[in-house]
Write a protein that binds this DNA or RNA. Structure first.
Length: 211
DNA sequence: TAGGCCATCTGGTCCT
DNA sequence: AGGACCAGATGGCCTA
């Protein structure tokens, strides 16, 4: 996988061997054994070496666990990248970790906003003609409020939630903003809505209405 | 060449 | 006690 291109750089067998050699020889081992009391001459050869070996083995074990933990973390990060709406082509550089997290947050916020807008639009069309006993979640009574983080966003402009989709953050690999502009009209909801509503949805105002 | 990003090692802390 | 988690340090790779 392309996303592993960088991690394999450092986790290749050769480099891992070097890493092991690094702690096996010299500095690290000295560090590990530093502060240990000198055993008597008779015991020095065997017990000191044993404790060194024990420490060394322990260190290798701990390092290996930590390495595995970080690999798992990176795997999860890759999973997140896969569902993020940015170009996945081979010519596109992988999102950095921080960019992935920030973009994911913005993406969630934008989807929340889209959902709320959709609920409002559907309610505008069908709300007045609701049948008795209808418990649709689209009814105003059931519409959930926006998340706090979303409500405190500085700008109501939809495109502003794409703040991260800028070249300076994504190394010129960010998708064009219009990649998102079709969000409403491509969903199943919009496709089944009356033509007029569908048009309205695809021409969202710059500001959130009524806020 | 500087700066960004990353993997790895390491020691400390917390939890079970 | 052992494992998980975290953050700092370090060094390598890559790009502008």
């Amino acid at each position: 996988m392309d996303s592993d291109s960088q991690s394999s750089r450092s986790s290749s067998p050769e480099l891992e061997r070097k890493a092991i050699l690094n702690i096996t020889s010299g500095q690290m081992l000295q560090k590990l054994c530093h502060g240990q009391r000198m055993p008597s001459r008779g015991r020095m050869r065997s017990s000191r070496r044993e404790s060194q070996e024990d420490l060394h083995e322990l260190r290798l074990k701990v390092n290996s666990r930590e390495r595995q933990r970080m690999h798992d973390l990176n795997q999860a990060m890759d999973g997140l990248r896969e569902v993020m709406p940015y170009s996945h082509g081979p010519s596109v550089r992988k999102l950095s970790k921080i960019s992935t997290l920030l973009l994911a947050r913005n993406y969630i916020l934008m989807l929340s906003f889209s959902l709320e807008e959709m609920k409002k639009l559907v309610n505008d069309v069908y709300g007045a003609h609701r049948l008795p006993g209808c418990t649709s979640s689209l009814h105003p009574r059931h519409v959930t409020p926006l998340p706090q983080a979303f409500r405190t966003m500085p700008s109501p402009n939809v495109s502003s939630y794409m703040g991260l989709m800028t070249p300076d953050v994504h190394h010129n690999t960010a998708p064009a903003p219009q990649q998102f502009s079709g969000l409403f009209c491509q969903c199943t909801m919009c496709q089944h809505l009356p033509h007029q509503l569908s048009r309205t949805a695809t021409n969202l105002p710059a500001s959130r209405p009524g806020k």
